[in-house]
Computed example of a mutant assay.
Amino acid sequence: MKVSREFFSRDTLVVAKELLGKILVREFDGKIIKGRIVETEAYIGPIDKACHAYGLKKTPKVEPLYGEPGIAYVYSIYGMYYCFNIITKEKGSPEGVLIRAIEPLEGLNIISENRFKDSYENITKAQKKNLANGPGKLCIAFNINKQNNWEDLIISDSLYVEESQKSYNEKFCDFDIVETTRIGIDYAEEARYFPWRFYIKDNNFISKK
């Protein structure tokens, strides 16, 4: 079952934590891949110097941050990689959650081909752990790019979030959450110390402890 808009229309920190364990689904070219969300980061524009819309800044690039809860905000970094965020709270309030790491579940060969140009059975154990353990990596693995910017995950059939499913693992919904500081935002002054990164404790597919 798809996650509803009401889920995203709440406090951003709550959404960031409750996205953990949910399933990201990507369909393209008749293929379907799925992964468990295991790490997120919250960004809250009005007070967050790490957010692109800090102080309610408005530019064409950050317009999606002001959109409806549940839409995608995809932007490029270093001119090479993409980061995938989901807008939260309410329209007009620039807040969102960065999906930072995913545990691949279905379509492993497709994910592996996207990342390493090789089948899942041929890649190393280390490569399997590194399939989607970072925002840029997961966008490559799940074929998420600038074309997905503004995509509405509530109505889309190609990119959306599903509720957790215990069928993948008996302990699928039973985990502890680690709350810590975000990564790669040393420029953000006091905001670099905000404990707004969340991940599933002891999960092997997070980007960094």
Rank of each mutant, 00 (worst) to 15 (best):
M1Q: 13
K2Q: 13
S4V: 12
R5E: 13
F8R: 04
F8A: 05
S9I: 13
E18H: 10
E18I: 08
E18W: 08
G21K: 04
K22Q: 13
I23D: 01
L24R: 03
R26P: 01
F28W: 09
G30M: 03
I32Y: 00
I33S: 01
R36V: 06
V38P: 00
E41S: 05
A42Y: 02
Y43D: 00
G45Y: 02
G45Q: 03
P46W: 10
K49H: 08
K49F: 08
A50M: 10
Y54E: 07
G55K: 04
K57F: 10
T59V: 12
P60W: 10
Y66W: 08
G70D: 01
I71H: 02
Y73Q: 03
Y73I: 07
I77W: 09
Y78R: 12
G79M: 08
Y81A: 06
Y81S: 04
C83Q: 11
F84R: 00
F84W: 05
N85M: 06
I86E: 03
K89W: 14
I99R: 02
P104V: 08
E106V: 15
L108D: 06
I110Y: 07
I110A: 01
I110W: 05
E121N: 14
N122M: 06
N122W: 09
I123F: 06
K125A: 05
N133A: 07
P135C: 00
G136L: 07
K137M: 10
L138N: 02
I140L: 14
A141T: 08
N145Q: 09
K146P: 04
K146A: 13
K146H: 03
W150D: 11
I155E: 11
I155L: 03
I155S: 13
S158F: 15
L159I: 10
V161P: 00
E162G: 08
K166M: 11
S167W: 13
E170V: 15
E170P: 10
K171P: 00
D174T: 12
D174S: 12
F175E: 04
E179H: 09
E179W: 09
T180Y: 02
T181D: 11
G184I: 05
D186W: 13
D186G: 07
E190S: 12
R192Y: 10
R192M: 09
R192S: 01
Y193F: 12
Y193I: 08
W196L: 07
W196A: 03
R197V: 04
Y199P: 01
Y199T: 04
D202G: 05
N203T: 09
N203Q: 10
F205G: 00
I206L: 05
I206H: 01
K208H: 15
K209A: 14
